[in-house]
Design a binder for these strands. Sequence first.
DNA 1: TTGCTCCTCACGTCACGTGAGGTGGC
DNA 2: TTGCTCCTCACGTCACGTGAGGTGGC
Lengths: 283, 283
Amino acid sequence: LLRIGPFSRLARVTLKTLRFYDAAGLFRPAWTDPRSGYRFYSAAQLPLLGRIRLLRDLGCSLAEIQQLTTSSPDGQPYRVGAHAPVYRMLRRRLMVGVALSEQRLRQLDALLAHEHPSGLPMRERRIAATAALTIRDCIRSGGSDIHRMFESAERQVARTGNRTRQNPFMLLHDMDYHRAHVDVEVCVPVRPEALGSAGVRLIEPVARAACVQFSGDYSQAPTLFDAALDSMHGSRARIAAPVREVYLRFGADQRGYKLDPRFLTDDVRQYRTEIQIPLRGIS
Amino acid sequence: LLRIGPFSRLARVTLKTLRFYDAAGLFRPAWTDPRSGYRFYSAAQLPLLGRIRLLRDLGCSLAEIQQLTTSSPDGQPYRVGAHAPVYRMLRRRLMVGVALSEQRLRQLDALLAHEHPSGLPMRERRIAATAALTIRDCIRSGGSDIHRMFESAERQVARTGNRTRQNPFMLLHDMDYHRAHVDVEVCVPVRPEALGSAGVRLIEPVARAACVQFSGDYSQAPTLFDAALDSMHGSRARIAAPVREVYLRFGADQRGYKLDPRFLTDDVRQYRTEIQIPLRGIS
DNA sequence: TTGCTCCTCACGTCACGTGAGGTGGC
DNA sequence: TTGCTCCTCACGTCACGTGAGGTGGC
């Protein structure tokens, strides 16, 4: 059982939200210590909370979510299928919402029609699928958390001897650098045979991605990401999947693992990074 | 000058919202009668209110909107260009938002993977551009407002003698039947020469639209629309533009105008209507 | 006069967020 | 003991919505 803090980080939800859901009877801790009042949650509760957050992101009120998650209408134990009509309705709402957003995008493009953003040297490329050991977490941006996550992932991979010679990379699940807390997944490529072991998953291929590179420290990434999106102005291309950051040349502690020396440098100015934005739609 | 009621209907905004914006200093009436307190708005204020609603739909707070609409940062009279960096930022937020919604759509499709919605006899077709005299309004759904709007539009067209033999149709700007108030635009096709006269505009062509027909009264439309969206489940097709309702056979008063008799019937059961959903993406 | 529209004012709502002030556990 | 985590409780926030009770204009 986990205390509220660790559980909130795992679930990527604030403490306040968990307490609020408890008070509302929407999502209760697995156990509450009656003397201290401490809430304890189990990892098995994560999928339910994930479904609750999905429903909330879909625009459901908490009352609706309670209907959809606490019991089936027929009194049977919980099955998604029993609520299929409601989920279909949510899907329709979402499709309409996306269409309205696209309409607003066109309105904005019309407003900005006379502003010419500076072009960026972007290349389009396809990205192959790869197996990777990944660690996902919600961290505050700009810190050294990503570094630590990579160190940990590389060490884990080193123990199995499955490392390939591909570059490490990161998936930005928010698809947006401009947040105090970002949801990132660091990925260390491994041999396909390792699929199925703990932490290893297949990263989907990308048919088309817009790519830009930069040298030096990572603080440039948000600005460059913005410029990349701006240069898509007027085009009908859209972000199709989480944005990736590929580390071409970088610094590493190499405590407990060894990397190909062609990746490495001690000089921050020699760092080389590529931002990849998966695309769909007409280019 | 218009009183608050008529203005709110024109602007598709509630009375309460207009009063709230007045109190907040965000959007003031052109004139307030000091003795009665009545608010009076001018039609020239509509574009500003439209921009305010667009910004709010883009997720701006009212404070941000005030910054963006009341003055330029350099003290010059208002120009959109002066705020271009902010608008570009909003565009980026929106693009990221759309990408997140697409992700949630895929999550929902995964949840519903084992549910097979009943297939619908839908056909895909391209729709040509046409000139039409249109009347747009925000009405309560299910009422006879649409009928009245068509009567009025047909009468206007009859006076000019520009009617073509195409079917009348309606654009659903909410793209969603399930609302108490829907934003609809009734369209009466006219000859292209009429473009430029009052109320006449060009309706964009549609490269691909999913189409279904039904007979009888109009209350079936929402259900059928739902079924159409459900049958798009799992596909990557998306709604690309306002949904259309084409009246193939229908009833009409014909007071002040005459329609082609092949359109007309007195028997509600003989009514024939087609729902057209413009699509983009892979079919 | 009736019916409709408009007014203000006070309070409610929704899903949390923000401290204040205090306690539990290693 | 210190530092960190956790607790409750009361209040704030945001963009309105909801009546109640009353007035203006044709």
